[in-house]
Amino acid sequence: MSGVVVSGVSRTFPSVRGGDPVQALAPVDLTVGEGDFVAILGPSGCGKSTLLRIVAGLDRPTTGTVTLDGKPVPGPGADRGMVFQSYTLFPWLTVVENIEFGPRERGVAAAERRATAEKLMAQVGLTQFANHYPKQLSGGMQQRTALARALANDPKVLLLDEPFGALDHQTRSLMQELLLSIWETHRKTVLFVTHDIEEAVFMANRVLVMSARPGRFKSEVTIPFAHPRSYKLKTTPDFGRLEEQLTEDIRGETIIAVQAGF
């Protein structure tokens, strides 16, 4: 089976200072086929990031397994690139050096990794900023660099943990279009976590709604729009109907989450 297969994965965090153990994630199953773009939509604290971290290998599942192309994932690795919500560029490296980090760790020759970085910088529109340090960049530019950095390893899967969550609305829209155009070119397998309904419907082929803690999949919606998609799609009636349906699905969960105090 190619792609990512999550089967029976749950995560319970051990108790802190005599409290009860917290089950963040109920056992969940998920298959993301090769070249698919799947968005996981859920209220904050529902365990969607925990699931993504488990797929990345940054966290261990309490039960269940994650496989990539049929092989269990042993831990974090270059085959699963990740972009985080927080700004995680290395502050001591310039934009181009940040993008070259992964290939350098894997022992790719200097000329080859520079060529990769230049190609990616052109794609995300950062060529003029190659020698800038992250602190000299805006939030949107930093996340564009982070996206290019993850793509530089040519990973099999791209894991995105609310990568545009800290950006303002306008910048976020442009970033969505950029990511979508990159996906339309590379057709990478993407697992995207977000709490933004519009973002999920605009980019994904499938949207999975996650329940309040402990997280499990409550419903799945297939997004029928053909690629390439334009930003104008967001104002069509079909788009609005899907948004409305998902809003209803997620609203109940958000109320539960708020009442539980997350």
């Binding site: 270059a78 927080s86 995680t88 290395f90 980090f101």
Partner: peptide
């Protein structure tokens, strides 16, 4: 060291030597 920087390096394929030598040391230098 910021944990998210270490995690980012791990997802980029860095191993122990890379984490210490090319993330922790330059961060703390």
């Amino acid at each position: 060291i910021r944990r998210d920087l270490v995690e980012a390096a791990l997802t980029l394929g860095a191993r122990d030597q890379g984490i210490v030598g090319r993330v922790m040391v330059p961060y703390a230098a």
